[in-house]
């Protein structure tokens, strides 16, 4: 042990990427060890594999039709499961660490709140990438093995969109987590949000549209303002190139935005990936006690 000195050297107070990465790596290691993480990974990969295998046999369809059918099934799967994964992981992240004292331990080191937040977020986002791309990868391999294979670029685009949806929900989950001191309350709120995004949003839009005769642009706007619907629109656009399936609202969107529609829908998902995360970061770094 060395003798001590009363003076304290001033070091940088700015965000250090190397520290963010140290925390992210710890999160990834914890995710790999977590039974919840593997439960999601196995569930998503199994369902994806199941959908890929039942979408093709006996269909006598190859090329676009084969991959398109698998992609459509995976979009339907992703819009239910992926938000739940992201929301619950995010909701548990900060509240869980706060509950056990791990957050206090982390922040008792020369680590800023921004570094703690960004490291946690990055680690979980990478872990979610493993789950999402693992599931899509398995589905892709099965599809190719059964004779599908065309339009793989669209398939990859949907996988990326699914990950962006996961990241968006992770941000929402972390936002919830910054407001609650107990992980059980955070998880409960996250599941409530999931119901809102995945089911009530869709049904609510339909019901409201019928009851109030919402104009077509209003219907499109309400879909774009729900991140799960935004993902669905962008994915439909990615593998079919049109939004005809949405009826008048889809036609309105195609007529209004033309060739830029696909890019705009993709950007909409990107924005949804960023907005809740920035809100959660602001709340965590400027918020109260640990």
């Amino acid at each position: 042990m060395t003798a001590t000195t009363p003076s304290i050297p001033q070091t940088t107070e700015r965000l250090q990427p190397s520290l963010v990465w140290v925390i992210a790596l710890k999160e990834i290691r914890e995710a790999v060890r977590s039974k919840w993480f593997w439960m999601w990974t196995v569930a998503f990969a199994s369902l994806a594999a199941f959908m890929a295998s039942v979408a093709l046999p006996g269909s006598q369809v190859t090329g676009y039709g084969s991959f398109g059918r698998t992609a459509a099934s995976l979009v339907a799967l992703a819009q239910i499961i992926v938000p739940l994964m992201g929301l619950t992981l995010g909701a548990y992240s900060i509240a869980g660490q706060r509950e056990t004292g791990a957050l206090r331990f982390l922040l008792s080191h020369p680590v800023s709140r921004s570094e703690a937040f960004c490291g946690t977020y990055l680690g979980l986002a990478i872990s979610l990438a493993g789950t999402v791309f693992g599931g899509f990868g398995i589905a892709g391999v099965i599809t190719v093995a059964q004779g599908g294979g065309a339009n793989a670029a669209s398939f990859v685009r949907i996988a990326v969109l699914s990950w962006l949806l996961a990241v968006s929900m992770l941000g929402f989950g972390m936002l919830v987590s910054t407001f609650t001191r107990r992980s059980s309350a955070a998880l409960g709120t996250a599941i409530f949000l999931w119901l809102g995004f995945a089911f009530l949003g869709d049904l609510g839009v339909m019901g409201t549209a019928v009851a109030t005769r919402v104009p077509t642009w209003g219907l499109l706007a309400s879909a774009v303002l729900n991140p799960v619907e935004a993902f669905r629109l962008a994915s439909l656009s990615a593998f079919s190139g049109s939004l005809d399936v949405l009826g008048p609202a889809g036609s309105f969107a195609v007529d209004t935005f033309g060739d830029r529609l696909g890019l705009l829908l993709f950007l909409n998902v990107v924005i949804w990936a960023g907005v809740p995360t920035v809100a959660a970061w602001a709340r965590f770094t400027h918020g109260g006690d640990v």
């Binding site: 304290i8 107070e13 331990f105 008792s108 680590v111």
Partner: peptide, 11 residues
């Protein structure tokens, strides 16, 4: 200077 201060402390 939270980071600098915590660098000098063990908890």
């Amino acid at each position: 200077y939270g980071k600098s201060v915590r660098k000098a402390m063990g908890y």
